[in-house]
Amino acid sequence: MVNYYSADYILPVTGSPVKNGTIAVKKGSILEIYEENSPALADKQVQRLQGVIVPGFVNCHCHLELSWLHNKTPKGSGLIPFIKEVVKTRRKPPEEDPAEAMERADRMMYKNGIVAVGDISNVIDSKAVKQKSPIYYHTFVELIGFEPDRAKDIFRAGADLFEEFKPLKASVVPHAPYSVSRRLFRFMSKFCWETGSLLSIHNQESEEENKLFRYKSGDFLDFYRDLNIDISFFKAQARNSVQSFIPLLPEKQKLLLVHNTYTSLKDIYFIKRSEREVTFCFCPNANLHIEKRLPKIEMFLHNDFNLTLGTDSLASNDNLCILSELKTLHAAFPSLELTETIKWATINGARFLEVDENLGSLEKGKKPGLNLITKMNGLSLTPESEVTKLV
């Protein structure tokens, strides 16, 4: 059976908006997009909807296994206190079944029109949920280890976990510049390059990260001391963290930089000169939850970068909803146009996760999912805008 949906606008993402257009879908596959008053629809039963039809959303950064930490962390405390709270809470017996929390989070994302997720995992616990889910998952097996002498053992454990996640798509990736030694970086870089894997890393989520790499100063020194980690080996780089670790990666490595809250214009110029295939991922609601600050979005707009969106985890967000992230961005940066940011929420993420052949845009033959955004002002989001999954 073919279903016909008409709306105030259809946003194909890879093409121009179609005002009062109609989209034909059969078993999730897009058959055609029709212009207003197309004669081909004369004898068709068309469901008329108010709002804007867009493809299914792509969430490039999530931590499904942290779902049980919802409402367990203070807001606005800063990154280091947030990390300490997460570590402390994870060491306690969970107050609810983590598997049930992950299943609920997965259902939440599905209901909110998310069709693909780049998910961070430190353990195997999320595999069962991912295998049952209608959502596509790429798992980033995340490694943490700042002490060089532990690098080989940590990497081997990560490689074993990577194997456990098969047949699901996965990569072995670093957590963050401040938590991964140069030696461990090299192990992962070699592995990702040899396996053709995607690489994701938390980047410049706090100014303390830049202080550590520039001057070997700031709150991270106390953080390591509290964890009894000796960092006498670490030398200040006299430059920000992103400029310090990117040279450790293969030149052709596909890289996702997540958060970028304290990324500077000099960092962006450095990344451009490096000629690496870099995608930036913004998680605005999590940034506000942790640091009460958003990235300087304007800096990224004119440099031809692939820009994407993520939700981060329920430990740092009240909802796993890409529309909510869009609303936060548009409220903070009113000059943004939905016809541009919808690409961040769909096709750009699909391209990074290498699923754009089927997801990310409304094109013939694709099965990208279909979302209806309601309570719009033309093609502009409002604080009341909501998403309904159609297909």
Rank of each mutant, 00 (worst) to 15 (best):
N3Y: 04
N3D: 12
Y4H: 04
A7S: 13
V18G: 01
V18R: 02
G21V: 15
I33Y: 01
Y34F: 14
E35V: 15
A40V: 15
V46P: 00
Q47L: 15
L49E: 15
I53D: 00
V54A: 01
P55K: 08
P55G: 05
C62L: 08
H63D: 05
N71D: 10
G76M: 12
G76H: 12
V86K: 13
T89V: 09
A99K: 15
M102F: 06
G113Q: 03
D125A: 15
V129Y: 07
Y136R: 02
T139F: 10
T139R: 10
E142T: 10
G145A: 02
F146D: 00
E147A: 01
P148R: 06
D149R: 15
A151R: 10
F155Y: 14
A157I: 03
G158L: 12
G158Y: 10
G158Q: 11
A159D: 11
D160C: 10
F165M: 13
K166N: 11
A170I: 07
V173G: 03
P174K: 06
R183G: 02
L184W: 09
M188L: 06
Q204W: 03
Y215Q: 02
K216N: 05
D222M: 13
D226P: 15
R239N: 02
R239L: 03
N240I: 08
Q243V: 13
P247N: 09
P247C: 06
L248H: 01
L248G: 01
K252G: 00
H259W: 12
N260E: 15
Y262W: 14
K272V: 13
C283I: 13
P284K: 05
K296T: 10
S313L: 09
A315C: 02
I322L: 13
L329G: 08
S335N: 12
I342S: 00
N348W: 04
N348Q: 04
N358C: 01
L359P: 00
S361P: 01
K364Q: 13
G365L: 15
T374Q: 13
K375V: 08
L381T: 06
V387M: 02
